[in-house]
Computed example of a mutant assay.
Amino acid sequence: MSLKSVATSFYTLLAVVIALAWAFPVYWMLNSSLLPNSTLQSLTPTFLPFGGSLDNFTSVFKHNDGSFFTALGISLTVTLSTVAIVLFIAFLGALAISRFRFKGRKSFILALLLIQMLPAEGMFIAQYKMMSSVGMLNNVIGLTVLYTAAVVPFTIWMLRGFVAGVPAELEEAAMVDGLSRTQAFLRITFPLLAPGLVASGVYAFLQAWNEFTVALVLMDGENQTLPLWLRGFVQSSATRETDWGMVMAASTLVAVPVIIFFLLVQSKMSSGLVGGAVKG
Rank of each mutant, 00 (worst) to 15 (best):
F24Q: 09
R231H: 07
N64A: 10
L13P: 06
Y128D: 05
I259T: 06
N223V: 00
S32P: 14
Q266F: 14
S81G: 07
F68P: 06
V86A: 04
L48T: 06
S251T: 14
T79F: 06
Y27S: 00
V17D: 10
G280N: 08
R105S: 09
L137W: 12
M158K: 01
G104H: 09
K129P: 01
I260S: 10
K106S: 08
R181L: 09
N138Y: 08
E211A: 02
I141H: 08
A204V: 13
K268V: 06
Q41V: 09
V163A: 07
G280V: 08
K103Q: 08
L20F: 14
E222L: 11
V217G: 01
V258Y: 06
V274Q: 03
L218M: 07
F212M: 08
H63M: 01
A23V: 12
V152K: 02
S33C: 06
I115L: 01
S81Y: 07
E171R: 09
T58S: 05
E211P: 10
Q207A: 12
T12C: 13
P36G: 02
F205E: 05
L218K: 05
L114H: 07
I125M: 11
L13G: 13
V83M: 11
V17A: 07
G276M: 05
L170K: 13
T77Y: 13
Q266N: 15
F205R: 04
M175D: 04
Q41P: 10
G93L: 09
A111C: 01
M130G: 01
I188L: 04
E172W: 10
T239D: 07
T82Q: 08
I141V: 15
S236A: 15
S2M: 15
T58G: 09
G221A: 09
R187C: 06
V247I: 02
G165W: 15
M248W: 05
L110I: 03
L92T: 15
W22F: 11
L264C: 07
F10N: 04
E172D: 11
F124P: 07
L114M: 08
Y147V: 01
K279Q: 08
V265Q: 06
I85W: 02
N139V: 13
A238N: 15
L48H: 07
F233S: 00
T213P: 02
V166H: 13
F212L: 04
W209F: 13
F69S: 04
V17S: 02
V6D: 06
G178M: 12
M175H: 15
A23N: 06
L193W: 13
L263I: 03
T252S: 09
F57E: 02
P45R: 00
Q41A: 10
G161E: 10
